[in-house]
């Protein structure tokens, strides 16, 4: 063994050790408060569980998963949720990127705009819901504006055809500023020297954007899209409030997490609820992996 490889080996061990040390707090806390609960959930998904009063676990094998096949509401909820994800995620990502680019430009009053744009994110969700009820109300602000421009008006809260669209708009409006902030933070890290070099090479504003800014933002965009997908797949609050928890009318606002919630807390059918959760997790994982291929994220080595 040469001296050099000995040295490299020692360095590798040291490197690995420091890696684990860096991860220690995370591993402990996530292990106890997230992985353990998830493992518990996985075990319960194969049982029929009664936790209230007389605690009983009855192993039922795949029964909970067979049940999913025959449960038409799962398919409906999945379809609603997918539709929601497919529309909301691209729009909110693009909007966030656009806002961040605009606010990163050296224009006057940008810090004022930054605070104003961020307001929806700091306002509590109870208040946001009320505000939207007020805006969506059949004689509310939105309809007033629409009728002013002689556009058709809707009963945004009562009509299922538009209720889901109303939820989408609200979600985009409330989430985009959040992602805008992350984009803004990432934009600070773009090395100025790259732009300068590009300028010398005669690149235009758009050219710089396509060749420097966008590639640089790729890892952050991956994060934002994944978080957007996870967040929208877990849509619950709004559809709960809009439908009073039923997911109606005729399942129009039923989402996967609302369905899981109904089974877990209304019916106290934990085993089945957890089986559904596993399926949801599988779907999101698949989408994320597809997405990762798409973004072609660089590997560590």
């Amino acid at each position: 063994m040469t001296l050099k490889s000995e040295f490299l080996k020692r360095r590798n061990i040291q490197e690995a050790l420091s890696g684990y040390l860096f991860m220690t707090p995370t591993l402990i806390v996530l292990g106890i408060f997230l992985v353990l609960p998830v493992l518990y959930a996985i075990v319960l998904a194969f049982h029929s569980v009664n936790l209230l009063g007389e605690v009983s676990y009855r192993f039922t094998g795949l029964k909970n998963f067979m049940r999913i096949q025959g449960d038409e509401r799962v398919a409906i909820a999945l379809k609603n949720t997918m539709q929601y994800v497919a529309i909301v995620v691209p729009i909110q990502t693009l909007l966030a990127l656009g806002l961040a680019l605009a606010l990163n430009a050296k224009i006057k009053g940008r810090s004022l705009f930054r605070v104003a744009f961020f307001l929806p994110t700091v306002t509590s969700s109870a208040v946001l819901t009320l505000i939207f009820m007020w805006i969506y109300n059949s004689n509310g602000l939105l309809n007033n504006v629409l009728s002013f421009f002689s556009l058709p008006t809707y009963n945004w809260l009562g009509d299922p055809e538009v209720a889901l669209r109303g939820i989408m708009i609200m979600n985009i409006w409330a989430t985009a500023p959040l992602f805008m902030v992350i984009y803004l933070a990432a934009l600070q890290d773009v090395p100025e020297s790259l732009y300068e070099a590009a300028s010398i090479d005669g690149a235009t504003g758009w050219g710089k954007f396509w060749c420097i800014t966008l590639p640089f933002l790729r890892p952050v965009t991956f994060f934002i899209v994944v978080m957007g997908i996870i967040g929208t797949f877990q849509l619950f609050d709004q559809s709960y409030i809009f439908s009073n928890g039923s997911g109606g009318p005729n399942n129009a606002t039923l989402t996967i997490v609302l369905l899981i919630y109904q089974y877990a807390f209304k019916n106290l059918d934990m085993g089945y609820a957890l089986a559904l959760t596993l399926v949801l997790a599988l779907v999101i994982m698949t989408v994320t992996i597809i997405q990762r291929q798409f973004f072609g994220e660089e590997r560590l080595d």
Binding site: G158, D159, P160, S243, N244, G245, S246, G247, G248, P249, N250, N251, A252, L254, Q262, K266
Partner: peptide, 15 residues
Amino acid sequence: MTSFDNQFISALLGQ
């Protein structure tokens, strides 16, 4: 109740 609420309103809306 969940099931009833879900469907009754769709009848009310004429779906």
